[in-house]
Amino acid sequence: MKKIFVDYKKCVACKGCEIACAIQQHPSHNLYALVGDKKTQVNVRVLGVEHEAFPVSCRHCEPAMCLDACPSGAISRDPQTSAVVLNPDICKACAMCAMVCPFDAVSFKQTHRAQYGRTVAYKCDLCHERLQEGLNPACVDACHSNALVFKESDELSNQRAVQNLKVYLLGDEGEPPLFSLYRELRRKEFARRRSDKS
């Protein structure tokens, strides 16, 4: 299946993916409708780890621990795209999935899709509806710097993936010198900020 990979050295932390995801998931599909809407669902999170930043989201593992853990039948695999999808209509937000997801990819709140006025789990659905229209996931299309790559994932990677996130991190070499300098300065800034030296 095709999966989203992260070339973390190319991530500029602009969070364009977060916004694109929110728009895609919002019933209005409109940026301005998101503002102040607490039910807005964002399935990708740009995580800052010291000087590095990269988007994290559901990895659509095979097998998927969340899917196996779900006692309400809410998580299933989309037959066409192999995406791990969550049906909020029958999700009870019991958190069994979140308890075992190694990627922290499941969150809870009252989204626009929540029934009965209660919290539900929500997670990346790989934009499987967009995929069926021949499009890329919204976050991938939104990424200016090609840090998000949608490409075929081989069997071997799938097996290792659950054990180790590194499988999803590309690290292509070669970048303009000033960008290298920028990254290096950021690295130094964070290293100094963390250091206990006084």
């Binding site: 991530c11 500029v12 710097s145 960008f179 920028y182 950021r186």
Partner: peptide, 23 residues
């Protein structure tokens, strides 16, 4: 945001905002 840190985010007109990615 790295665009802001690199100075390559422009919000001067409403045709934007535009960003030039450093790569």
């Amino acid at each position: 945001c790295g665009y802001g840190q690199l100075g390559t985010c422009c919000r001067i007109c409403t045709q934007g905002p535009c960003r030039i990615d450093p790569l």
